[in-house]
């Protein structure tokens, strides 16, 4: 039973991907899309989803939208500008190193979101996740501080706040 309940969100998600990728919504697309999405949902539902209930909470979607807007229009732009400036500067002011930042989220998807957000912004790359899932090790192009809490404020605090709202 739980397998079928878990299959539903995966099926809906994959159906949306199917329709967007196909780019049309005729009867043929909808019928084949539903069949494919149901099969994929039943096969992969138990692997992808741990808690179906979270999908029903609408505020998560709004937080997700806010996360995307903040991420693409503020965080990414700032990070790109910063690293491009460093590349084009004749003196190339880099000060690389690996710092350790604490991370306080519950679900694995939050860790994925935070780590991917960090890696996707130029200037920071997640090198390692501590086995107890409480620390990330970040390669930082310009190490301002080696104190974990201050580094967290500079790198991941906002991502973590959003990720907690969306995935936890």
């Amino acid at each position: 039973m739980s397998r079928i309940i878990r299959a539903i969100p995966v099926a809906i998600l994959t159906f949306i991907v199917y329709i967007v990728f196909t780019g049309s919504a005729t009867h043929f697309d909808i019928v084949t899309g539903v069949i494919g999405a149901v099969i994929v949902g039943i096969v992969f539902g138990s692997v992808v989803i741990t808690n179906t209930y979270k999908f029903l909470q609408l505020q998560r979607y709004f937080w997700g939208l806010a996360y995307a807007l903040y991420y693409f229009f503020i965080a990414e732009v700032r990070a790109h500008y910063d690293v491009i400036k460093r590349i084009l500067n004749p003196k190339m002011p880099i000060n690389p190193g690996i710092v350790k930042i604490p991370i306080d989220v519950a679900s694995d998807y939050s860790i994925l979101a935070v780590a991917n957000s960090i890696t996707n912004t130029p200037g920071t790359v997640t090198v390692y996740v501590h086995p107890n899932k409480k620390y990330l090790y970040i390669n930082w192009i310009d190490v301002v501080t080696r104190e974990p809490e201050e580094a967290r404020k500079a790198i991941s605090y906002v991502f973590e706040k959003f990720a907690k709202k969306v995935f936890d």
């Binding site: 790109h80 690389p96 130029p122 790359v125 090198v127």
Partner: peptide, 16 residues
């Protein structure tokens, strides 16, 4: 950039 780890940041610019 001087080494592999710093080049990863340039690769991120390339990807995004």
């Amino acid at each position: 950039f001087p080494n592999f780890f710093v080049r990863l940041h340039a690769a991120t610019i390339c990807a995004i």
